[in-house]
Design a protein around this nucleic acid. Sequence first.
DNA 1: CTGTTAGCGCCTTCAT
DNA 2: ATGAAGGCGCTAACAG
Lengths: 344, 344
Amino acid sequence: MATASDVAKAAGVSISTVSYALSGKRSISATTRDKVLKTAEELGYLPHASARMLAAKRSQIIAVTAPLHQDTDHTVHMQFAMEVTKSARECDYDTLLLVHDDAMEGMRRSAGTALADGIAVLDVDADDPRADLARGLDYPVVFIGIPHDTTGLICVDLDFEAAAALAVDRLADAGHASIGLVSHPRITMDRGSNFPLRFLEGFERRCRERGIAFAVAYPEATSARRAINELLTALPGMSGLILNTGSEVAADAVPALGARGRSVPDDVSVIAAGAAYSTERFAVPLDTIPLDAHASCAAAVDLLVAAIDRGEREPRTVLIAPEYRDFDSVRRAGVAEDVSQASA
Amino acid sequence: MATASDVAKAAGVSISTVSYALSGKRSISATTRDKVLKTAEELGYLPHASARMLAAKRSQIIAVTAPLHQDTDHTVHMQFAMEVTKSARECDYDTLLLVHDDAMEGMRRSAGTALADGIAVLDVDADDPRADLARGLDYPVVFIGIPHDTTGLICVDLDFEAAAALAVDRLADAGHASIGLVSHPRITMDRGSNFPLRFLEGFERRCRERGIAFAVAYPEATSARRAINELLTALPGMSGLILNTGSEVAADAVPALGARGRSVPDDVSVIAAGAAYSTERFAVPLDTIPLDAHASCAAAVDLLVAAIDRGEREPRTVLIAPEYRDFDSVRRAGVAEDVSQASA
DNA sequence: CTGTTAGCGCCTTCAT
DNA sequence: ATGAAGGCGCTAACAG
């Protein structure tokens, strides 16, 4: 490959002029800059990444640690990894994938060898060991997700508590006084995956605040049947349902309600909250409070790049405000009851 | 961070002795090696990645290009990306994720800047533009998947034709003379995604060779219902079914057959072939010819590393022989008929 | 077996 | 506005 000195020779300038002409880090006469740019183009010159890294003391690489648990939703996972990558590219960074087997080792290595300039941490557990590591690293790390102890960390995530409250409010405002929540599988909860916990807390708190009768069920991996049955047992009059689940369980909720003689939205109003998928093509589209991978990852990468490039490392937690997307799966409680009484 | 010269000073040796003691690239007396290793340990020395890359003319990085199509099965995708990463780590390589938006640009950049030492290409279409790029790059590239024109390329994949033939043989050997195939959604086929095509060809050829009546259906994204109905219309006597589909469609196949009054395996023998998922926890576990991400990726990484480290760049296509996993979802045709007659 | 030294290709300060 | 030159930290000949 052509080097900067090749370009310099061919263009009849010095090697530093080539460097500056391409980086624009100091003023260069239009004439010589054009000449340099043109010959660089002709020679197909591209700066050697390692040489640039070494001289600039920056690798322009962000490491991504994305553990794969048995219950990991790969769809969501992949979305986040790709969104981090996309956002990183927009800031002129590449992303390096760390294997989860030795996430800690990978993080230490990235930092210790300056392989990467910073790390994005995905799929954060409440009691995530990567949090302590990050605290001891003196190295830019951003968490996409919120561990229990955020001391000293930079974290970004959807505000799941607010999302839960928003969902409850929508249903309560529509007159629903008995609301069920389908949360995540037990295995996920037991692991201490944090966002389901935060959603759950937000849900319970807001229900209490508004005097709503509520119940919670934990589905199996891909079926909502048993969870729905449990909710209907606990709340026979349940007229509102919030799904904080993966897409498969969410898609199964309407049929599961149907199997118990409830139709959506006439008998039960349903909201999918913290959903990384679209419900538009469901048999019955559901009102959604999206988990926007792009928003979270773009914000996270911005923070990480700020920490790397501008040394902005003040710990902080950025909660992304939830949005509501209406697909008409929530009806007024009174109306719904009239309809069901009429048909009864 | 501590540098090699820090270690050299502290250990009272020369800098090259440090380098050699750590790389083992030339013999060193046990005494001095131990001394070097110990002080390196004490100082927490880790070689600076960029410096090492520059001097060694090798980045120890493999780029991975993994396009995300609308119909991409993220589960499979993620599996492959992670398996490449794991295998790469075992060869002391890291993996860089290329965004699919500008896959070509990313490949050119990886090669042109020596950011990566080679590229692994995932999710290969029959007419994949990355193939032509690779041919023109003079740079180690390995395809995990097989484009139509493999001239000049190194490719690795499950032998989907053989897998199809194996599935047909199993059913034919068990006396089934009428076999249906649920292939991939039309959108996937239209894109020219190659492995479904190869599977389809293998299926049709072997059916013809063995004089089997056959039919093919293309399912929707997540439901097998319509596809199953189409097959039963085309082949009213269908007693064998091959599923070359994603996990959701596969899981839906048994219920879909049930809805048409067929039970598995009594009325219909079923095989999931080219399956990247496990059927063990299906209501009815299915005989499986696995699509083993680990096997494909490990082989691919080995080839890529051989190309990088040892210059072994002869084009070739490695087809991984299919294996058969028996879960008792295939019964003898005669037996099955007796049972269904008895219950009729 | 070990030390000395010349780069790797680029960035950037110091001169001019 | 441009050029010259000194590293960045490591590897790998080249000398002993």
